[in-house]
């Protein structure tokens, strides 16, 4: 009897071992198929198209590097690349400067879990309106006769409206910072919330003042949140085109705007070149950010 039981057990163990690869396959198949069809193939296609021959009205699959040469010898495209990098860095810094203290407050200083959730939900409320409205709402705010200028003039701080507020790089940066800040606050607040209160009390008990504790305990323990937030913000800002189109009066051209115009005028090869460059740029940025913190270890 015991013998049969043992054999049965061995057999079932054998079966489950044999079934294992089966199950792995079926669990992974939908995701893998989806990603291959709609991510890997399009990316390869994009790279391929970037080497096609582009004439004014047509594109032929004859391989050439002409589009690439045009991109790197054109001031317009190169300056768009630099503008993209500059605006990305400024917005990244701005979201961090605005978002980190907010996350520190919500995640660490608000002890009440309910209040914490309420505050985080408040951060997300702007997302209940559409992207376009959020961007366009900045116009009556920043414009020459907009709210900020009217108030500053009314108070008597300035005589002439500040024109640089709207349709400038500044307005794009203000708009993007507002829109993407929450993606910085969320991950950082999450990491802050995971810091054990008694760890901070222990540091206090050992004689450290607040800034010491911040530098030696809170900052390193919240770094994974900063990295995740930075990845979110970077990926979104690098691919941006709508905010700059709506708030810069077409003065600020990002790589995203280049892609939109090129696709609009059916210049697929140029669009593909810009797309490949943008993808590589994002890849480098994400890889570099992941170097900062080993997320697998931290999360």
């Amino acid at each position: 009897m015991a013998m049969t039981a043992a054999t049965a057990e061995a057999a079932s163990a054998d079966r489950s071992a044999k079934k294992m690869p089966d199950r792995t396959f079926w669990l992974l198949a939908p995701g893998v198929i989806w990603m291959v069809l709609f991510l890997v193939v399009p990316i390869l296609m994009m790279v391929y198209v970037s080497f096609w021959t582009q004439t004014t009205f047509a594109i032929t699959p004859t391989l050439t590097i002409k589009s690439w040469v045009t991109f790197f010898s054109s001031d317009t495209y190169l300056s768009a690349l630099w503008t993209t990098i500059r605006i990305w860095l400024i917005v990244l810094a701005a979201t961090l400067i605005v978002g980190y203290p907010a996350a520190l407050f919500v995640g660490l200083f608000v002890r009440n879990k309910t209040l914490q959730t309420v505050l985080l939900v408040l951060c997300v409320i702007p997302f209940w309106t559409s992207f376009l409205i959020r961007v366009l709402a900045w116009r009556p705010m920043l414009g020459k006769e907009g709210a900020i200028n009217l108030i500053l003039q009314g108070v008597g701080l300035i005589n002439k409206p500040i024109e640089v507020l709207l349709f400038s790089e500044l307005s794009v940066i203000i708009g993007m910072t507002q829109i993407y800040c929450v993606f910085m606050v969320g991950p950082i607040a999450f990491m802050m919330g995971r810091i054990d209160q008694s760890v901070i009390e222990a540091a206090q008990d050992l004689g450290a003042g607040f800034w010491r504790i911040f530098r030696t305990i809170i900052l390193p323990l919240s770094m994974p949140g900063v990295v995740v937030g930075a990845i979110f913000v970077s990926v979104m800002v690098l691919g941006e085109f709508a905010t700059s189109a709506a708030l810069s009066g077409r003065k600020v051209n990002l790589l995203g705007n280049i892609i939109v115009t090129q696709v609009g005028s059916l210049k697929w090869a140029f669009a593909a070149v810009a797309g490949v460059i943008l993808t590589i740029l994002m890849g480098i940025v994400v890889a570099a950010l992941l170097r900062v913190v080993d997320l697998r270890k931290e999360l």
Binding site: A202, D205, G209
Partner: peptide, 20 residues
């Protein structure tokens, strides 16, 4: 006197070691 100026040691129940 705030805790960091008291010089009274505290050993926490969960040890509260600095995880990093």
């Amino acid at each position: 006197v705030p805790p960091h100026r008291r010089n009274i040691g505290f050993v926490f129940q969960n040890f509260a070691l600095f995880p990093h």
